[in-house]
């Protein structure tokens, strides 16, 4: 039975139910055990399994390194990075180790681990606690970057990530934690590497992940009132991208707008744009547009941060531009 719960609760349920199912699953990270996580996502797990939930020192390299080693032994670690920005201090373990283990071991063992990373801006915490880090990991073959946008996806994608044998960086957008939605009680998986067509349309394709999905949905409503039909693609897995679903959609509409929260340079928008330019040029009716943050660090002052982050109006402008081209 599905009931309405929050994104946070859906994540908690995914971990709890996977730990019930598989004793190789354990959690570790800074304050994830007794406190239940800085954002409360792991609440209640340590109480149930004191020997499967571990508070660590502030040592992101040690946490992710431990995950690599333990996963080669058959365990399934789920680590929390309190802020995705901290990925810089364990980058080596993710990039040089986790992403390469299956390659090195030729399929005999792999980094079957999940690093949950709390991502995104808008909480007035400045540039060390607000960044969108997916571009930093997007050209590391071997890694998987998963980005849920709804409570339903939060649970289904986290379950799939825990069960997946590749190293998964699981992005949790702070703004989504309190979003509520229908989530089945039973265990279920949403397959990785598959984008989801949130809404079908014929004139414009908007690709938007995580918190940007709501921009896309609102824009689609607004454009529909003007007779413009928008198709929305939620990638769900940001890397490796489900190119086919995006291509099928853009082949139909001939117009693409990518909405991404991070800076414009080298985000998933850049990759999708380049991919379509290369593989779908023939079908395009208008230039590809990206709606993104400015290419700056995320500033602290609310007015400044709002100025830098993507604006909803920019999505509408982009829609008008691609239709008028």
């Amino acid at each position: 039975m599905a009931r309405i719960i929050s994104f946070s609760k859906a994540l908690n349920e995914a971990m709890t139910q996977e730990m019930e199912r598989d004793e190789n699953v354990f959690i570790l990270g800074e304050d994830v055990a007794k406190m239940g996580g800085d954002f409360g996502i792991t609440t209640g797990i340590w109480e149930r399994w004191p020997n499967r939930a571990f508070d660590t020192a502030l040592s992101e390299s040690a946490i992710t390194g431990l995950c690599c080693g333990a996963s080669v032994c058959g365990l399934r670690p789920v680590a929390e990075l309190m802020f995705a920005d901290f990925i810089t201090v364990c980058y080596d373990q993710l990039v040089n180790n986790a992403a390469k283990l299956n390659y090195m071991y030729q399929g005999e063992a792999s980094a079957q681990m999940v690093v949950r990373a709390v991502t995104g801006g808008g909480i007035r915490c400045a540039y060390h606690h607000s960044q969108c880090i997916e571009p930093w990991l997007m050209n590391i073959p071997g890694l998987v970057i998963v980005a849920p946008a709804t409570p339903y996806e939060a649970k289904g994608l986290l379950v799939a990530s825990i069960r997946n044998n590749n190293p998964v960086v699981f992005l949790e957008h702070k703004h989504l934690y309190n979003v509520k939605g229908e989530v089945p009680e039973e265990l279920y998986e949403i397959p990785l590497y598959e984008a989801h067509v949130e809404r079908e349309g014929t004139d414009i394709t908007i690709v938007a992940a995580m918190s940007m999905l709501k921009f896309a949905q609102k824009a689609a409503d607004e454009m529909a009132a003007k007779g413009i039909s928008v198709e929305i693609i939620n990638p769900r897995t940001i890397f490796p991208l489900d190119k086919e679903t995006i291509k099928e959609s853009v082949a139909k509409t001939g117009r693409l707008i990518v909405v991404q929260e991070g800076p414009k340079v080298m985000g998933y928008g850049a990759e999708i744009g380049a991919m379509l330019g290369e593989e779908l040029f023939e079908y395009l009716k208008a230039p590809i547009k990206r709606v993104t943050s400015l290419d700056t660090p995320v500033p602290f002052a609310p007015g400044m941060e709002d100025y830098v982050l993507p604006h909803y109006e920019d999505v509408i402008t982009a829609c008008n531009e691609v239709m008028a081209y």
Partner: peptide, 21 residues
């Protein structure tokens, strides 16, 4: 591993595994 100091933390995982199991 070609990265100095990388296996030093990876080794935590196998040692941890012995404790966990």
């Amino acid at each position: 591993n070609g990265i100095q100091g990388s296996t030093v933390v990876t080794a935590l995982g196998t040692a941890f595994n012995s404790v966990y199991r």
